[in-house]
Amino acid sequence: MSMLPLGQADDARADLDATTGSGLSVTPTGFASQAAEHAELPLNLNDLLCPSPTTTYYFRAAGMVATDVAISDGDILVVDRSVRLRIGTLVVCAEEDGFAVRRIGVVAGQVALLTADPTLPPLLVADEMTIFGAVTYVVHQVPQGTGQVLP
């Protein structure tokens, strides 16, 4: 929306404010800006990363082992509970002593939660509390370098 600065608007009103013979009050509003009809909300990262705010949670990734998705130590994981789970979905799940990132897979015909490390045993889904939610985004801060500052 485009508006005249306040002072100018008042001046314009003083010049143009008039009462027509019919008794109707006429107030100038200025010529509508062409940009106004094209006004849209600017981009907002929340709309991209968190389309479902009531079901989205954030976790901090810990661990340095390379996985099939690029998650680094310290990254922020966006986890949405409303996402439909499928075979292949990356999830945050509850283990004995805390949360871990695993992928939903199938072992011997049974749904199981797998890690990239083949030596670790798969985790079975015990109840609705086992899977916290699907990992939908990974927020990673790029290191800014440590060298000489450019002029």
């Binding site: 976790f59 901090r60 810990a62 996985t67 998650i71 949360f99």
Partner: peptide
């Protein structure tokens, strides 16, 4: 857990 980036829950990756 829900109000400080420093205290959000941790998920292990391996």
């Amino acid at each position: 857990y829900m109000t400080s980036w420093r205290e959000i829950p941790v998920a292990r990756v391996r």
